[in-house]
Structures are given as structure tokens and as C-alpha cells.
Design a protein around this nucleic acid. Structure first.
Length: 201
DNA sequence: GCAATGATTTACT
DNA sequence: GTAAATCATTGCC
């Protein structure tokens, strides 16, 4: 069983729900240089007017424009001038919310991913971390605003479900500047999975 | 216009 | 543990 997630999956107003439900789903990229699939094992929710950690907290800008776009599209931005971050836009059009994909477990095309990254295919450094998984899967800045329902990057459900006890919630990484929002338990990961990022506290 | 900084990673000491 | 890479955005003059 394999089905591309429909627009309705992404249109829920609360990004936290989508972040939890994305665990176990399969991210799929058909790039100029090949095809790869990987299971999502770590996510973070961002958005709404109260989330000071969100890029949209201060309102709409050229960078975060795509966060206000249609549900089920991509928000890709450059972080620290070095790494690309891949987010899934959620909520109704005009409502700024997104889910950052922070860790994926390779399923298909791992050798190609390994070549891009310069690490062994069975090494977690391949795709455990938001900045490295985009490099591994060949997600570039031109993927910003890409439609995840019909475009060359998609997310599908292959029936895999993690039991509730395997899902871990915790603080988001790298948002200590965000005041109370820094403590929101909006980071979700699969307990014990080696492809979850080694995040600092 | 200029300076500081960040939803990170890696290689150092 | 600390620092560098590297640039768009932001805030302040």
C-alpha cells in the first residue's frame, strides 16, 4: 500500500498535529540526478502568531513568503548561509505554519545519497539532521514552493505506523532566543532510531 | 549603509 | 568545548 498524502493532510490548522503524523511517512525526491526515498523519523512544528521561534512571527517577508502559501507545498530556506532546510507548509493558505523535517532514514537511493554527502551509506551522518538530509536527497533552493502533491518532491503513506510509546516529544533545537516559545514541546522523533539528529540541548 | 545574527554542521583545541 | 563557514534578513544609524 502506497499513497501520496493528499492536500487535506496538510491543511489542518495546527502544525503540531501534522508534525506528529509525518513520522513514519516516506519523503520522495525525483531530481535531475536520480531518485531517492527515505522515511521521516524527526520533525519540528513552527507557526502561528504566538510562536516567537517561527520565521513568520514578525510577519510576512520575502524569505518566509512560502510559509504563507498553500498547504502541501515546500518552504526551503538557507540557514547560516550554508545549509538548506526543508519544511512542509501546513494550515490554510495565508496562515503561516510549517513542519521542519529534521531526520530521515534512507530506503532507496542510499548509495547516491552517500556519494553526495561523502559518508558511508549506512552511517547516520548521511541524513540525521535538517541541513544534511537536504544535501543527501538533492533538495536545492529551487524546491521552494514546490507542490508536494504533484511535484518532483512528494510525501507518501506506505502504511507504516509507530506505536505511541515510540514517539518522543521535546523542545525544539536552536531556538533559545525565542523566549517562552523555546520551551514548547514541538519536536517529535522516533525513540531509539539512529537517524534522529544528534541535537545539542 | 553597516553590523549582527541564525530552525546548522564540522573540524578543531 | 569553541570556532569557522557564509549570506539573507533584520535592526539601527
Amino acid at each position: 500500500m502506497r499513497r501520496t498524502l493528499p492536500k487535506a493532510f496538510y491543511s489542518k490548522k495546527n502544525p503540531v498535529c501534522v508534525a506528529k503524523q509525518l513520522l513514519g511517512k516516506v519523503l520522495w525526491v525525483r531530481g535531475k540526478r536520480g531518485f531517492c526515498r527515505a522515511r521521516i523519523v524527526e520533525t519540528e512544528a513552527y507557526g502561528g502568531r504566538l510562536d516567537r521561534a517561527s520565521h513568520a512571527w514578525r510577519g510576512r517577508t520575502r524569505r518566509n513568503e512560502s510559509m504563507f502559501g498553500a498547504p502541501g507545498t515546500a518552504y526551503v530556506y538557507l540557514c547560516y548561509g550554508v545549509h538548506r532546510m526543508f519544511n512542509v507548509v501546513t494550515g490554510p493558505t495565508g496562515w503561516p505554519a510549517a513542519v521542519l523535517i529534521r531526520g530521515v532514514e534512507p530506503m532507496e537511493g542510499a548509495e547516491r545519497m552517500a556519494r553526495r554527502r561523502g559518508v558511508p551509506a549506512d552511517d547516520f551522518r548521511l541524513s540525521a539532521g535538517p541541513g544534511v538530509l537536504t544535501e543527501a536527497m538533492g533538495i536545492e533552493s529551487d524546491a521552494d514552493r514546490c507542490d508536494l502533491v504533484s511535484g518532483s518532491i512528494r510525501i507518501e503513506d506506505d502504511g507504516v505506523r509507530y506505536p505511541r510509546t515510540k514517539i518522543q516529544a521535546g523542545r525544539r533545537v536552536g531556538v533559545s532566543y525565542a523566549g517562552p516559545a523555546a520551551f514548547f514541546p514541538w519536536r517529535f522523533s522516533v525513540r531509539g532510531n539512529p537517524w534522529v539528529s544528534r541535537a545539542r540541548a
